[in-house]
């Protein structure tokens, strides 16, 4: 099957647009790249759904000396019944080398939608917790943490 004029024009437009996207990927600005990675991870979790603030409580110390072990606790308001429960909890960071920290799958058998753990933080940054409810809605909470000793000491990350 031959290519129609319309298809050819669409392909031409795409091939012109791609190098532009590739240049954005090679951006020397690390912070911007990490932010993009965060947005990408966020999109992977929620898709096109809207994320609302509330129902989720993310507890983190406001100031931490050692980024290698930061106590983190997430609690989501939910009756945790078969009809209305929390399906998943995700924790994301903005400036870690990888945005994902931890993902939890749970159901009504958990009784309470909570998670307590310890995480690594590469930098002073904001941490986000996202909960997915059984009705498909997403709720989130963020917390700012000041880290004096980074978990992964590397150049270029201030």
């Amino acid at each position: 099957m031959g290519t129609t004029r319309r298809e050819f024009l669409i392909l031409a437009a795409i091939s012109l647009a791609v190098p532009e996207a590739a240049r954005a990927q090679l951006d020397p600005n690390l912070a911007a790249n990490r932010k993009a990675a965060f947005q990408e991870a966020l999109r992977r979790i929620v898709g096109d759904a809207q994320v609302r603030r509330g129902r989720v409580k993310l507890r983190l110390p406001p100031l931490i000396d050692n980024g290698n072990s930061v106590p983190l606790a997430v609690a989501v308001e939910s009756p945790m019944t078969q009809a209305d429960h929390v399906r998943a909890i995700h924790v994301l960071t903005e400036k870690n080398p990888l945005p994902d920290v931890v993902s939890v799958r749970l159901g009504p058998r958990a009784g309470r939608a909570t998670l307590a753990t310890r995480v690594r933080l590469a930098d002073t940054q904001s941490v986000t917790a996202i909960a997915q409810m059984s009705d498909g809605s997403f709720w989130s909470d963020s917390a700012e943490v000041v880290v004096t000793l980074s978990a992964c000491l590397e150049e270029g990350l201030i």
């Binding site: 990888l98 920290v101 799958r105 749970l106 058998r109 958990a110 753990t117 995480v119």
Partner: peptide, 23 residues
Amino acid sequence: TEVYRVELHPAMSANPLIAFSTI
């Protein structure tokens, strides 16, 4: 019956602590 499942990433601290609840 599975009650709790966690996916861990490198940003979890060494000797990972996971605390949760169940009925």
